[in-house]
Design a protein around this nucleic acid. Structure first.
Lengths: 141, 141
DNA sequence: AATATAAATGCAAATCAGTCGCAATAAAAA
DNA sequence: TTTTTATTGCGACTGATTTGCATTTATATT
């Protein structure tokens, strides 16, 4: 697929190359989709946004290597699929409103406490919440 | 399926009936499998243990109603499937060793803190860890 | 700038967890 | 014992994710 390369985002290309990854158009489009989103995206949502440039299998492959390289974070909100977001500066977790679908970030984490408590070397952890947000609570009694 | 009923566990039957559920053999076998296991089981693992008495669809249906009734808890260890355990007295979370597969319980929880912090009414939360246990760490340098 | 080479892609087929429709069966109520 | 209603077991199905493989593309090499 020979479409002119996006000159506006050399940062992405550099970051991909730093990780030993080729800066391909499909990958750049996936990164852009995530960067432009205010909430973590599922593979299906990314596909909707990037289908002109890539296919599902490639998106899944990209998300996997991105996550391995620390370019993205994988988020499990118990929806039956995973979401991804660009790995930000500050570590955080999420809470999703089951009523309106909003996803908010939470700054509390107990990884270090659990590491201390258990003696495990923790590779991965997932701290995710579902509920009803204050706004929806207000509107529905 | 007319197989003589297990007289040894009237407690289960009563508990199921209390929840408005019929105490069927398939359900009793699923509960027994979970009670006899030292770690949370996946639907596939339960099926291996109970296939003489039930099928996969029924197991999934049982696990769903059990969890709705508070008989079981659903655990998401980011394995691509869910695990279930009999709902015990004290609330807890889990950490799984990626090396030996052991699953340990953790008593810390931040549900209340998050509830306070966000104003959400939390319906569900999942706080799960993966890593390498002290024992495996010791053995592999 | 042209070429080599290794990585990545796109497609279709496969896998795997979990669900659904429905006729047959079994538990609990009458 | 009979009736009622929930539950089962089967097979087909969905939806997320993965895999094999021939083709293409980014980057290193000349």
């Amino acid at each position: 697929m020979q479409i002119s390369r996006n000159k506006k985002l050399p940062g992405i290309n550099i970051k991909l190359n730093e990780c030993g990854l080729k800066a391909t158009l499909p990958r750049i489009k996936v990164v852009e989709a995530l960067q432009n989103s205010k909430k973590p995206l599922s593979a299906a949502e990314i596909y909707k946004l990037t289908k002109k440039y890539t296919d599902r299998a490639s998106i899944y492959r990209s998300l996997r290597v991105f996550t391995e390289c620390g370019i993205t974070d994988e988020i499990n909100l118990n929806e039956g699929f995973l979401r991804y977001e660009i790995s930000g500066k500050k570590h955080h977790h999420h809470i999703k409103c089951d009523n309106c679908g909003a996803i908010k970030c939470i700054d509390i984490c107990i990884k270090l406490d659990v590491e201390k408590l258990t003696g495990y070397r923790i590779n991965k952890h997932s701290i995710e919440f579902n509920g009803v947000c204050p706004n929806c609570l207000k509107n529905y009694s």
